[in-house]
Design a protein around this nucleic acid. Sequence first.
RNA 1: GGGCGGUUAGCUCAGCGGUAGAGCACUACGUUGACAUCGUAGGGGCCACUGGUUCGAUCCCAGUACCGCCCA
Length: 882
Amino acid sequence: MLSKVYDPGEIETKWFRHWEASGAFRCGQRPDADPYVIVIPPPNVTGSLHVGHALNNSLQDILIRFERLRGKDVLWQPGMDHAGIATQMVVERQLDAEGRSRRDMGRDAFVERVWTWKEQSGGTIEGQLKRLGASADWDRSRFTMDDGLSRAVRRVFVRLYEQGLIYRDKRLVNWDPKLQTAISDLEVENKEVDGHFWHFRYPLADDPAQHLVVATTRPETMLGDTAVAVHPEDERYQHLIGQMIRLPLTGRLIPIVADTHADPEQGSGAVKITPAHDFNDFEVGKRHDLPQINVLDAHACIDLDGTPYHGLDRYAARKAVVADMEAAGRLVQVEAKKVMMPYGDRSGVVIEPWLTDQWYVDAETLAQPAIRAVEEGRTRFVPENWTKTYYEWMRNIQPWCISRQLWWGHRIPAWYAPDGQVFVGHDEAEAYAKARAALGPDVVLTQDDDVLDTWFSSALWPFSTLGWPDETPELAKYYPTATLVTGFDIIFFWVARMMMMGLHFQDEVPFKTVYVTSLVRDAQGQKMSKSKGNVVDPLDYVERFGADALRFTMAAMESQGRDIKLAESRVEGYRNFSTKLWNASRFCQMNGIGGSDTVAPPPATLTVNRWIVSEVAATVAAVTEALDAFRFDAAASAIYHFTWHTFCDWYVEFIKPLLQGDDVDTALAAETRAVAGWALDQILVLLHPFMPFITEELWHALKDDRASDLIAAQWPTVGSQAIDAAARDEMAWIIKLIGEIRSARSEMNVPAGARVPAQIADLDATTTGWLDRNREMVLRLARLDGVEPVAGLPTQGVVQIVVGEATVALLLQDVLDFDAERARLAKARDKAEKEIRSLQGRLANENFIAKAKPEVVEDARAKLVDEQATVARIDAALARLA
RNA sequence: GGGCGGUUAGCUCAGCGGUAGAGCACUACGUUGACAUCGUAGGGGCCACUGGUUCGAUCCCAGUACCGCCCA
């Protein structure tokens, strides 16, 4: 017997172990079935589960379990990402605590240390995903630094290099002076901060009495200025274009150039140009063939031997430069100003544009097929509006800087000869072979020190995890994958790059649908962040309410195109829902209702049973349709509403007299038990993708000889042909009748427990049949003593209720408040009258009759007749009272 | 500056060309043999604003205001 209260903790780990041990998560179990594949967005090996993961993976598991139940050959490919910078930072922090540094210990020892850390404490997130119930094929879990995936990375690098799509170039990069590495544009966060605008006088070389005022937010970079630019159409400066400036502090001569980059509205309209330290200036420098003077070293300290600034860090240098300019009388003013500053998203320090040699991918070329694939609908975004974001990025894509000055990652497979010639190969031997062929047998090579951007390896994820570069059966069967579920924040980082690499190396899109999830915020709508302290730990909710409740919350709140504000009350509410389901199952168990033997609905003669079969069929259609359309909220709401408000609130209450009375008809009771058991089974299957644990537990509790676990059961097959319109009409009337009686009782303060005798008038043949067939249910649920059909209703001591054509009178004798009853009827009359006026207004409009859809007009007419009849009956009821 | 989205009950959100729904919260009653993590009943909304299209607009279109996000 099930316990009275559902305790999730008890059963969740039990069932997960069982599924895992039984191999339920493995792909390839249905060799003839269509595949359905999702690759997990690989979480960082350093990561732990946050609420975004909980959302994302709940949705993936819902899709996976849904398709598994539908009989597909399902593969959910799990794994983790080596997360270059993040992981290196974790281990460096440990070393720091030990008073050591990676440079002391050397590259090999450091990398070994990272591996040790990874083996010991990396990947806690996998365990946390399992706690959520994630039914991925865990035996296939991959890591981006695996041998196989590393081989894929080298293969891709070599091939793209040979195709001229990877190259080495000297360009400005975003340099992180703290982490000592280049990072990509995407890893830079631009933030507006309080800064200053320093206005300096730059003297003309020919006439030092004359000067040009330039304004800058970065005074220290003036040491690297190689020009001053003015707008070509700026009247004020026409005569100066082509003249020279004597740059203060260094004394270098620099030209005044005309360039549209100078904004006449900004400051004085003249702008200093520092090509080696600013992305815009770099472009200006190229247009005017200006020298690029690098004045900073890798630590962002001034690197100008022989000057007083040498060795100062950028902020100290700024102070010194400003002080010296002021002392020289060249500081005009200092203006407070909001400025945009680039910050490294990992290090949090200000990024320095810096001139270095790096490796680049020709993203523009690779992007073209990736754009076409979406234009042609081979891959589609859901919700659809993310397509625009994707195009926006792809059509303006910049060369992708893929080298990182880190030690943890895939080392770049490029070797240099002493003369600087580059040899790229899958391994050292291949590079040597090429080098010897070119340079002779004695050549000595050194490998590039740098590693590849982490996203370079995750770009290969949809096929590298399937075994590529080997031509494995898995690759043949499971590529392209079906659905990618991810957050909008990595459409650029990851989705776009998978599209490029997948198309280039497999000639096919990596996935057919990209489902973009919402962003989870806190209950106040704030983005969660550690610094704000509003981070919700999903595992805390799992502990308190169960993984099922958290998963259901995620699904129920996941509506397309809106952020999720996660409120604890919702999780609690869905915990209550699981308790409700638990107790409904407990009721069934106590009444001899067990799991069904059939997937098809059992034969039913009773209206109430035919009705619940119809309601199940409608719910199956609604849930299936919603999941097919990625409407997780609609699917969750359909199954929730059916379970609680149809099955529990009405059906279970309806069947009690059929099972529990003194004079039970055994044949009808047996039919009812079969139908109830079947309906509950359908609930369990429909709900399983959302709440896998409780449903699996109940599945077995209701029947101990199940043919399979629920996880491997069959999605309901009952179709719309099982919907019985007559049964639905009949039960709708019964429900309305009971509802109206309850409402009147409550309003008239009839004690809730009191059994009241009733009479009913004006039934026709149909409604007489309806009432006769369901009399026991009505008596029980409306708390009536009896409901006797009569020709004329009594006039004294009655509460009258109009339901359709019929009027019910509750016989209350002495306890009736006459005025209250009159008021109650009057209120009902007003409501109907209001409706009548509205309908009459509409029907009086010729245009409405002529132009509205015929069925709409017909509906309005029918409703008007109905409401008028209701008013007539209420009037009759009022007349009886008088 | 460019792009995307939002504005519906006290709160969180669905919805749809035919004058509005859910969950939570609130009020009253309630221990009826599944369930108080519950049941029954109830109150609560000029669907942001202004125009337009339409027989009819919360819904479609245009604009305005405010709020968010992304990119420069």
